[in-house]
Amino acid sequence: MKSLKNHISLIIALFTVLASVQIYVAVDRTIAAYESHLKNDYSVIVVANKAFTPQEFKTMSSMIERSEPISTAQVLERLKGEMSEKNLALLKLTLPKFYRIYLNRFPTPHEINGLQKKLQKNSSIERVEGFSQTHDTVYKLMLLFKDVVQVFSIAIAAVTSLLILKEMRLWQFQHAERMNIMALFGAPVWLRSAVLFRLAIVDAMIATLILCFSFFIIDYYAILTLPLKEIGISVQLFNFINDALRSLAISLGISIVLTFTIVMFHREEE
């Protein structure tokens, strides 16, 4: 209990770094899932003066997943009472072909422009509507959110790393006497600082366990996944193998590097 108390600040700091990284990863996954959700709803409308097959559209851009013609029958039906049969038949002949094109991923605004240009190179295509304005707003909002979370995570990681460094300096003072005594009897650096490394490794493991437990609770009680499901996003916020291993590697990396730094800067008492 006493030992846990001594290291609680390091554990909290490490947990904060891990949590900020995990939140960034979770946001990234959520945005990727949302992109996929948007992709299914998103399409480009093409107006052409001749009929195109789905295969012909596919050859125009690798982004195109599938295409379907938009039927004009409904429009012509509505005009039946207002126009003569002859004019209607003429209109039917001269009416362009409309196509809805679905993409294999949610495009960036730049990709939409590129796609529009590619399609318009074909002389039979009269007009391409990418709905870039609507699309642009949603996408930019999403990217802004992602960037804010990223900056926030980096800031937290930087501040907590400094806190960890300070905490480890306190450890150094606590352990300096023992390290000096061991040095007097010829202990090599690794043996003198073995306790520091052991403590750092144990704290890194505890911080990772707390992170896993926290995300298990969030997952188990569907605290975040349920509201996301309600807006059509199905996402795994914490992968218990990959994310746990990555978190362990990060916390071990930070604590070992910082301990190593402290050990290297330790000056033997004269």
């Binding site: 007097l184 009897f185 010829g186 090599p188 650096v189």
Partner: peptide, 14 residues
Amino acid sequence: GTSKLNFLRRHIGI
């Protein structure tokens, strides 16, 4: 050097 000093100190009692 450090390693030589450590070696020497392993043969000294203080």
